[in-house]
Amino acid sequence: MNTATVTTGATVTTAPRPSRTGWHRLAVTDVRRLTEEAVAVTLDVPDALRDTFAHRPGDHVVVRHRVAGGELRRSYSVCPPPGDPDAFRLVIKRGAPDGFGAYATTALAPGDRLELSPPVNAFALPDLPGAHHVLVAGGSGITPLLAMAAAVLRADPACRVSLVHAVPTTATALLADELAELKDAFVDRFTALHVLTREDRPSELVSGRVDTAKLPRLLAALDARPGPGTTFALCGPDGLVTAVRQALIAWGADPAAVRTEIFTVAPGTRQDTRQDTRREPPAESVTEPVTGTPPGVRTARVTALFGGRRAAVTVEPQEDVILDALLRAHPDVPYACRDGVCGSCRAKVLTGEVALGGGQYALDADDLAAGYTLVCRARPRSPEVTLDFDA
């Protein structure tokens, strides 16, 4: 059994969790149409896997889908209905026409089975009793934030939660009915505003893009103010999350009080390896880009520990990042996006040194100081390296 460290704003809590590696086949019990492009998929977790798939608000899993000639891996937030927090449910959008999302939204049915990795992540609201939690979601970024809002409203009767959800149109607003139910259940403590970016509404405040000019007015409407009693959680496309985070900090919010996660499928990226991915913007000066061959290392022996197993490969840093070399011999090594975004390939460096390249967004300063790296962005800097994916 491993211990996961979860950063929650000003506090850090640790709790035991089973291994985050390995694959398990779970049966689909329900597929519910949400919009033309999205479904909610509920899965059955057998008693033997209850501990393995115990989930916290903000957790995500990787789904592995077998296709001719290979596999697709996608990461999705666990998003139980507000009235059933123990349910194991994923919200899946269509995405690429030949991807897993297309299959899930057109062919997936009760009785089918999906291969999943155990839940992981550290996207969470701070343990701050009586706080005002201000959430900003863009599109499918609502999925972790809905779970987080429902959980904190149930757990802390003194807190308030305010949510801004930016979506193109009313018809594309995911989980709007469940947000309304949550409002009815916590009418005095939960407020939700939908901002339609491609549909006109009577009020200009809730129409158009959520930008640096509109954000202060939205926050004023929610009676949100920067300070020790207010926290922020942002999730959505890169542009929205980055702009909102910068605007909040300029407004006076403590950067440590702004938790972020990014869902993105950038044009031209590897559609065969990801659909929804998530990340936290790194703290300033967390890591410098590393390019070219790390000095003094032509080949290295990398030993990886994952799922109770030990694997060793030879890596040529001028040719490969560590993940590429591992996957050629051990395709079960954890990963999803391969772009330094989702954090699924996070591992702790036990011995040796690695160079972490630029473009990683899943590790913060504390992770790096503790010796963690992303193998999709790392190259050996010493002849021998040992990595632990289960740490």
Rank of each mutant, 00 (worst) to 15 (best):
G229L: 01
R50C: 00
V341T: 13
P85L: 07
T7A: 14
L368G: 04
G358F: 08
A10G: 09
D324E: 10
T172L: 13
A176V: 04
V349F: 05
P129D: 04
R379E: 11
A336R: 04
I249C: 14
D51M: 05
L43Y: 06
P334R: 02
V333L: 03
A300G: 00
L218N: 00
A257V: 06
L90M: 02
T386Q: 02
A220F: 12
V297P: 02
W23H: 12
A336H: 11
F190C: 04
A102S: 15
Y335L: 09
A54L: 11
R56M: 02
P119H: 02
V167F: 00
F123T: 02
A137Q: 04
P267W: 01
A221M: 02
G70K: 11
T287M: 15
Y361I: 05
A27M: 03
M148D: 05
A304W: 05
A391E: 07
T242P: 04
R74N: 13
T170L: 07
P57M: 01
A166G: 10
A176W: 03
A185C: 09
T8M: 13
D200V: 14
R94G: 05
A365R: 09
A4Q: 15
D184I: 10
T5Q: 14
R154P: 08
D44Q: 07
V349I: 07
R89E: 13
H132N: 03
T314D: 09
R20G: 12
T7E: 15
P216W: 04
V195W: 06
L108H: 08
D84Q: 12
T351G: 09
P295T: 13
T269W: 12
V91H: 05
L26N: 00
P129R: 08
R20I: 05
A40L: 01
E319M: 15
T230Q: 06
V302Q: 00
G239A: 12
D272R: 05
V41R: 00
T386I: 01
Q360P: 06
L49E: 03
